[in-house]
Design a protein around this nucleic acid. Structure first.
Length: 625
RNA sequence: GGCCCCGUGGUGUAGCGGCCUAACACGCCACCCUGUCACGGUGGAGAUCGUCGGUUCGAAUCCGAUCGGGGUCGCCA
């Protein structure tokens, strides 16, 4: 389809990036190539906005440049064109200060269509709402949009920074296998059948955990990897079946060394990316402290709404709901919402509903009218359903305990410890959302430490590891492994930011005996332990150094810096909630021959499901003839 | 696995038993327009309402199933 000046005659397809041109280029002959962002046809004069990865520039086509003018009138959105012309300063009054290239334009002498384009299924040249499914189906078009280009570049910037930072700190990047051994603990594995070993399966790594520990034994004492991880669990906005971790491990370190590294890395990233306020040093809270003050192990600390214990004030009160809970070992806790004394009954009912959904049997609220400290309150100054059980002074005491002033609202929950934490956490987030308390320009990083090592799994009726089974217990708690696993604290830590877990890590077990003890606590027999983790136990016999590490989620990190809620917005080709790829149609059935090779027989359910898919879903579309 | 929401021209929405032979915006097509930059003007094409089944004299509108997307709880060491 060579037209006009066939582009194959040209030395280069382009001499400049569209977005690079400035007033200083005025007078230069340039050749540009890119997509037609928008066409404005004035009849006697045509404007094209030309877009490439560097940005936009306006091309003006005059009728006297005849071949170019003809070509310009046939051109449509998203056509790929090559433009030759001269950069000229725009006439007075026609500059566009909104555009970086707005002081100049390119007067076209030649326009070559390198490729035509169908009308895109959704606008590429503007930010509009398009349902997720359509965006994913045409992801290559979605990614052309400015926002996604920006996110991809930011992701690159982040990974570049990380590599430089880690290198400068003496770490080396080591790649580890994707085909590995299935592990009994943790998330469901993605399995890969072996052709050579009938009936045997590889598992894709949930993380390179064991490999990196083996690298420590191998004497690679500062390892990192930007590693893909796979978990076959149900998905959310912040979870994909495959995701990326910055996997880090160090030998001869203690918790402080790892936290220090993570802090320096994220401080560096904050500086590198810019545009956010962030703490100079990251606060450190123990798990217990965190649950006490925020009701969660991943608090959003951009707003206060800190939780306070009110049990002591209500233990002997006439309000039986409170008194009874406390006497039965539960607690009464609450927090103050500044300036919320005017929240309507309806709003309070809505909050009560939220509390109920979280498992509370109810929610007690107290509103203090007026301004100033909670002194000399009259009954009229207080609105609350529990007025007849408490004197104004009693209620003021509750308010003061939560740091409330007049004009504030008090929200109080009662029940077992875990319940009040959950309820108040949900309420904190709800209130912050409603009242818009979270500053989007802020990144509130903090570390949470001293996690419990084990939690009781009701379904499995056994203990399971909170972090993972290689996490070192506190030395002074090792004795409790047999007698009271729930009381064992572990040397694990999280990096939290704005209510999200950003990174998670621990000091690992490097002693075979301790590892065996932990496996025993988790209910594995010696035989099972040997079968599943024999390679680790064996490695620990050969001089395993003390070691530990951390694994920040790269997708979440980038989403945080991009101001995106959903990690899909920072992943080039993400999957849907049901883990399918709408662009290629994966996963899909394979030929009977392929199945036979890997010794797999489909059951009835699988055959029916595949047949149903064949009639319903499409893959990529047909070619146009 | 449970619960909830969504599925209407290319895109986003409106319509929620007969007034729908389906509306609006953007986009698309044609014509006009020499300075726009979300150009403007005039005209036009385009969906049987995800799919299947049912209720009804009558369904986009009600019911059921199913497929797809999303949210949430469980799950995610």
């Amino acid at each position: 389809m060579a037209r006009d000046c066939g582009f194959e005659e040209c030395q280069v397809l382009k001499t400049h990036g569209c977005g690079q041109l400035r007033a200083e280029h005025a007078g230069e002959q340039v050749t540009l190539a890119g997509w037609v962002h928008r066409r404005r046809d004035h009849g006697g004069l045509v404007f094209l906005d030309l877009r490439d990865s560097t940005g936009l520039v306006q091309v003006v086509v005059h009728p006297d440049a005849a071949p170019a003018f003809e070509a310009a009138s046939d051109v449509r959105s998203e056509y790929v064109v090559q433009v030759q012309g001269q950069v000229v300063a725009r006439r007075d009054g026609t500059e566009n200060p909104e555009m970086p290239t707005g002081s100049i334009e390119v007067a076209a002498t030649s326009i070559v269509v390198l490729n035509e384009a169908d009308t895109p299924p959704f606008p590429v040249n503007q930010e509009t709402d398009v349902v997720e499914a359509t965006r994913l189906r045409y992801r290559y078009l979605d990614l052309r949009r400015e926002r996604m280009q920006r996110n991809l570049r930011l992701r690159h910037q982040v990974t570049q920074f990380i590599r430089q930072f880690m290198d400068a700190d003496g770490f080396i990047e080591v790649e580890t296998p994707v085909l590995g051994l299935a592990t009994p603990e943790g998330a469901r594995d993605y399995l890969v059948p072996s052709r050579v070993h009938p009936g045997a399966f590889y598992a894709l790594p949930q993380s390179p955990q064991q490999w990196k520990q083996l690298l420590m034994v191998a004497g690679v004492d500062k390892y990192y990897q930007i590693a893909r991880c796979y978990r076959d669990e149900d998905l959310r906005g912040d979870r994909q079946p495959e995701f990326t971790q910055l996997d880090v491990e160090m030998a001869f370190v203690e918790q402080e060394d790892v936290l220090d590294l993570a802090e320096r890395l994220y401080l560096g990233l904050c500086q590198e990316v810019g545009g956010f306020t962030y703490p100079e040093t990251f606060p450190r809270l123990t798990y217990a402290e965190c649950m006490e003050r925020f009701g969660t192990d991943k608090p959003d600390t951009r707003y206060g709404l800190e939780i306070h214990d009110l049990s002591g004030y209500v233990r002997n009160s006439e309000f039986q709901v409170f008194a009874k809970v406390v006497q039965e070992g539960g607690r009464v806790r609450g927090f103050a919402v500044p300036g919320a004394a005017d929240v309507s009954r309806r709003g309070l009912d809505a909050l009560t509903e939220v509390a109920r959904d979280a498992g509370a049997s109810g929610l007690v609220w107290v509103q203090f009218a007026g301004e100033g400290p909670l002194d000399g309150l009259a009954a009229d100054d207080i609105k609350t359903p529990i007025a007849r059980f408490f004197s104004p002074d009693d209620l003021a005491a509750l308010g003061k305990a939560c740091g409330a002033k007049r004009g504030d609202l008090l929200l109080i929950a009662a029940g077992p410890d875990a319940l009040t934490s959950r309820v108040l956490d949900v309420l904190r987030r709800q209130v912050a959302e409603e009242r818009d308390l979270a500053d989007p320009e802020r990144l509130d990083f903090l570390f949470v430490t001293e996690f419990p090592a084990f939690e009781w799994d009701e379904d499995g009726e056994r203990w399971s590891a909170v972090h993972h089974l290689f996490t070192a217990p506190f030395p002074e708690d090792v004795a409790l492994l047999e007698s009271d696993p729930g009381a064992v604290r572990s040397n694990a830590y999280d990096l939290v930011c704005n209510g999200q877990e950003i990174a998670s890590g621990s000091i690992r077990i490097h002693s075979r005996e301790t590892q065996l003890a932990v496996l025993r606590t988790l209910g594995l027999t010696l035989e099972e332990a040997q079968m599943k983790f024999g390679h680790m136990l064996e490695a620990f016999r050969y001089g395993a150094p003390p070691h530990g590490g951390i694994a920040p989620g790269l997708d979440r990190t980038v989403a945080l810096f991009a101001g995106e809620r959903d990690i899909r917005e920072v992943i080039a080709f993400p999957k849907t909630k049901s883990a399918s790829d709408l662009l290629t149609g994966a996963p899909a059935g394979v030929t009977p021959e392929q199945l036979a090779e890997v010794h797999i027989l489909l059951d009835e359910e699988a055959r029916q499901a595949l047949a149903a898919r064949a009639t319903g879903v499409h893959g990529a579309d047909e070619d146009d003839a």
